[in-house]
């Protein structure tokens, strides 16, 4: 082996070694464990387990609850990701300046990330409350009828999605900020000399240079949207009648309420493969463009 090839091997070990070994032990190993479990039927209460091959996966094909959860997940993802990203980018670009007032807006919009959902969840339950909630109070004041925000199966999912957006916009905004800070100021100066207005500055300087950040936010938002759990747990517990049960919530429910661990593991694997494919497509699409 040549000297430089040897050096490269050492470098890879030093640079990738720490992260990859922690990830292997504490995340990849548990995922492989789940993969193994998905071929078993395991009743957690009695402790009896037996190898059942693909039957968990085949059972999923005939499980209406699985399709319901899949459908809800698709609505949840499509309803939160594009809007959450567009709003965050717009706000980030507008308030990316060192002005005292802007610093207040930034903090206000990031507050939902700072305070834990265990606390804000209670407040959202009060806001959405059918009898005394502030939202219905306002509706009645302006002469409209009350809405059962979390109790109506046609509306509950959207009420939860609103809380997700409320949390996600500030989160995305801060990542976009970081991306905006590393765009060299000379590029803006050059564009200004060329007489570029705000609109074309954004198109020719901000957008192309922000692409690695934008692709990061997109990929992360999709992954997060597929795995969101807390807001559903805190506000609706998947109800009413399964209308807010997403895939992750369904997995949690089958594992910890019905103690059907094998089946829950199989659904986890389907979720895993689904998100993996989506992520791979995006990585392929962006990796050529963002250099």
């Amino acid at each position: 082996m040549s000297k430089s090839a040897k050096r490269k091997k050492w470098a890879l070990l030093i640079y990738l070694g720490p992260a990859m070994s922690f990830l292997s032990v504490f995340i990849i190993l548990p995922i492989l464990f789940l993969l193994g479990l998905s071929f078993f039927k395991w009743d957690m209460l009695s402790g009896i387990y037996s190898f059942t091959g693909l039957s968990n996966y085949l059972g999923m094909l005939k499980d209406p609850n699985f399709y319901n959860a899949l459908g809800n997940t698709v609505i949840y993802v499509l309803g939160t990701v594009p809007l959450g990203m567009a709003a965050a980018l717009l706000i980030a670009v507008i308030i990316n300046r060192k002005i005292r007032a802007f610093s207040f807006y930034r903090t206000a919009i990031f507050m939902p990330v700072i305070v834990s959902l265990a606390a804000t969840g209670i407040i959202w339950l009060w806001i959405y409350d059918y009898q005394n909630g502030i939202l219905n109070h306002i509706l009645v004041e302006i002469g409209l009828g009350k809405v059962n925000w979390l109790g109506n199966p046609d509306i509950a999912l959207f009420s939860v999605m609103s809380v997700t957006l409320w949390k996600r916009i500030g989160y995305n905004m801060v990542i976009f900020f970081a991306g905006l800070q590393v765009i060299p100021t000379q590029l803006y100066e050059a564009a200004k000399i060329d007489g570029a207005r705000a609109g074309s500055q954004f198109k020719y300087v901000t957008w192309p240079n922000l692409l690695p950040t934008t692709s990061f936010v997109l990929i992360i938002n999709l992954i997060f949207a597929f795995r969101d759990f807390s807001q559903i747990y805190v506000m609706t517990r998947g109800g009413p009648i399964g209308s807010t049960t997403t895939l992750v919530y369904y997995i949690y429910e089958t594992a910890f309420n019905e103690f059907n661990i094998g089946y829950a593991a199989a659904v986890s694997m389907v979720l895993f493969v689904l998100v993996m494919i989506l992520t791979y497509v995006q990585i392929n699409y962006f990796s050529a463009k963002e250099r």
């Binding site: 992954i223 597929f226 795995r227």
Partner: peptide
């Protein structure tokens, strides 16, 4: 690396 993000902690 990206695959380690998919399964939520609540399930692992």
């Amino acid at each position: 690396v990206l695959s380690t993000l998919i399964i939520p902690f609540h399930i692992l």
